[in-house]
Design a protein around this nucleic acid. Structure first.
Lengths: 202, 202
DNA sequence: ATTCGCCTTGGTCGAACGCCCAAGGCGGGC
DNA sequence: GCCCGCCTTGGGCGTTCGACCAAGGCGAAT
């Protein structure tokens, strides 16, 4: 068999695109490590192993870079979650996996922190809020569909509360060691059933 | 009736204490407005109407000021919540009030943002994490006691999840306008009853 | 009247910040 | 062979940062 043709050498535009990706990845990492407003152009450039002047060549401002980096990271995880829901053998297994994914995020890992930082920054940045709302709408609807298929009442409202509760758990986890998935799993599952009159009277 | 004796003139120590309080209040406000790592000594001093050199006279560092300001704010609200639980005519009314308090916080108000910023900063600051954990333990236990009195199963775990869920809702609220208390209240109340086998099958 | 301790002022230090730009490298189309 | 457009470099602009300090104010104690 003939050897595969060697890949064409990357053009200048190709290399530029790759630098862009490195800058975005470095930005997302640093948001998680230091917090949104403690990320500097020089730190991003150093992490991405580029000259610091490149930041303002590829992006209009540091804020624009951070917005794009954060939204990209959030969208990637939501896409993964949606795929998990769609490819699972049964819907029940899918939701089990989603709840089980709680263990993958400790509240101090880069993904958890990026999520929390992004939601928080969106409260102060209209443009970020709009972008995040769009991404969130897709994930919320996909989750609500599956909840509805399972007979969960008020699937839209339940999906919204479930997503918020998971982020709240990530936010509290570093401070509350009791928040293991074994402890909270049974309680969270109560969200999937109608309130039982035989239970609490609140 | 004799006029009340005039209050003694404030001593230098009194005035110093008052400046401390102003600095702490200014610090808490600015954490909410700008985000933890975007608060500067000069901004705190200006908001507190003091000279900027006072910040490092009264506090060892900017970080120490912010830690104390944040923990003070968090503790104040948790004390208020605990009082609400203890002074209500009935326990049921108390929990209704707590859930109703959801409407008081929009996710963009200073209190909500201070809470979220503090939890997030605690993930990166061991000292802050310890202080926050202590305050949280008291509030959690008080809430768990009342949940237990109401017959809610697993009151400790439910209290932890409920507190986390409320903070998660505050975090999501600016992005998800659907998170009104009318929409999420009924879903949240499911947390108070044992999972009903007749409901969702997840 | 003098001393003492606490608080306050205003300015300064070196470092880091966001953003900008002149100048150069370099491969693809004419 | 030349030019054009895109990418890249390294340095520099003015500003703001956290921290620090010499000097003074002032009531309480002696």
């Amino acid at each position: 068999m003939p050897p595969p043709p060697p890949p064409p050498p990357p053009t200048a535009a190709d290399r530029g695109r790759e630098v862009r990706q490195r800058l975005l990845r470095a930005g997302a990492e640093l948001i998680a490590e230091r917090g949104w407003s403690a990320v500097s152009t020089r730190a991003v450039a150093e992490r991405a192993k580029t000259a610091q002047g490149l930041v303002h060549y590829h992006f209009a401002s540091l804020g624009a870079l951070l917005r794009q980096a954060a939204l990209g990271g959030v969208e990637a995880l939501f896409d993964e979650l949606t795929t998990l829901l769609k490819t699972a053998a049964t819907s029940q297994q899918a939701l089990d996996r989603v709840l089980g994914a709680l263990d993958a995020y400790s509240g101090t890992d880069p993904t958890s922190l990026l999520f929390t930082e992004t939601y928080l920054a969106a409260a102060r940045d209209e443009e970020l809020k709009d972008g995040l709302a769009g991404i969130l709408a897709g994930a919320r609807d996909a989750l609500a569909d599956h909840l509805g298929d399972q007979g969960v009442p008020q699937p839209q409202e339940t999906a919204v509360v479930l997503l918020a509760a998971v982020d709240g758990l990530m936010l509290h986890r570093p401070t509350s060691p009791a928040l293991t998935s074994a402890a909270v799993g049974p309680v969270l599952r109560r969200l999937f059933t109608e309130a039982n009159p035989g239970g609490g009277t609140v």
